[in-house]
């Protein structure tokens, strides 16, 4: 009996060790890294449904490529007609705020814009600007609570909270809880809690495509605002790994073409 108790204790210890052996920040880092290939191009559709089911559709094409330590993205709107031709250029840096420019056909010129408004809605959808860019992992504290089963897969449950009120204000939420696959590091679900601590939005990520070299990309992301009933679906229509575009294509001049 004593032996069995000892073995059980060892087993429990082993389980706990296996949870804590993984630093939650490292897990989040790896989950971020595997879904950020160095270069790709895609066309995607963003559909937003209001609480009555009425939809708004935005189609975009974009290219992303890493040059040195900077990841550059150029995105253009294909539809609807009133935003067609609008372009956004983003220089994503590891340790400082992004540089961003926007070309608006109505103004006929490119404008430098402020990138610090991470909590703002992305194109009028339930996604925020922060959801669309690589997060600065140092801005958050991480806690690995437990593991859970999600659609038959074992996932870590990782809670991340902004380190300061300012960061919370900038991002628009007080905490988020992510389900990350223990084997593949794919993120399946993220729950966002508003600044009052109430559940605000639930994002589900699916249709992962294996890109080789240990990289994956989700072809579908859906986010539902449980407080107002709106939901947005971002789906990748076409995906091309790698990009033949040169650095000359990730410029404000290219936005205007």
């Amino acid at each position: 009996m004593k032996k069995i108790k000892f073995l059980l204790a060892l087993l429990m210890l082993g389980m706990l060790t296996s949870i804590n052996a993984q630093n939650p920040k490292e897990i989040t880092q790896k989950a971020t890294d595997i879904s950020n290939p160095d270069a790709f191009e895609m066309t995607s559709t963003l559909t937003t449904y209001d609480s009555k089911g009425r939809e708004r559709v935005r189609q975009t094409t974009s290219a992303t490529k890493k040059f040195g330590e900077t990841t550059k993205t150029i995105l253009k709107f294909l539809s609807p007609a009133d935003v067609k031709g609008t372009g956004i250029l983003i220089f994503d840096y590891k340790n400082k705020d992004d540089d961003m420019w926007i070309y608006l056909p109505a103004l006929r010129r490119t404008r430098r814009i402020i990138s610090s408004e991470k909590s703002k809605s992305f194109m009028g959808s339930e996604f925020s600007n922060a959801d669309m860019s690589r997060p600065n992992l140092d801005d958050f504290n991480y806690k690995l609570d437990r593991t859970t089963q999600y659609e038959g897969k074992t996932c870590w449950v990782i809670e991340s909270t902004p380190k300061t009120d300012k960061i919370a204000d900038e991002n628009g939420y007080s905490k988020k809880i992510a389900l990350i696959d223990k084997n593949s590091y794919e993120v399946y679900q993220v729950k966002y809690y508003d600044l009052d601590g109430e559940l605000w939005k639930v994002m589900t990520v699916s249709d992962y495509q294996d890109l080789g070299n240990g990289k994956v990309m989700a072809r579908k992301m859906e986010i539902k605002n449980v407080q107002n009933g709106r939901r947005s679906v971002l789906s990748i229509d076409k995906l091309q790994m790698g990009s033949s575009l040169t650095e000359n294509n990730f410029t404000t001049a290219m936005l205007e073409k």
Binding site: E41, M42, T43, T61, S62, A63, I74, K76, L78, A81, D82, K84, K238, L239, Q240, S243, S244, L245, N249, K257
Partner: peptide, 25 residues
């Protein structure tokens, strides 16, 4: 050699073929 981004913005994946695109109001 046109990639997905370029062919999407020119609305063609056969760049040797003339492409007509239009919109209006």
């Amino acid at each position: 050699g046109q990639g997905l981004f370029e062919s999407s913005t020119t609305e063609s994946n056969k760049p040797s073929t003339p492409v007509i695109s239009f919109n209006g109001y």
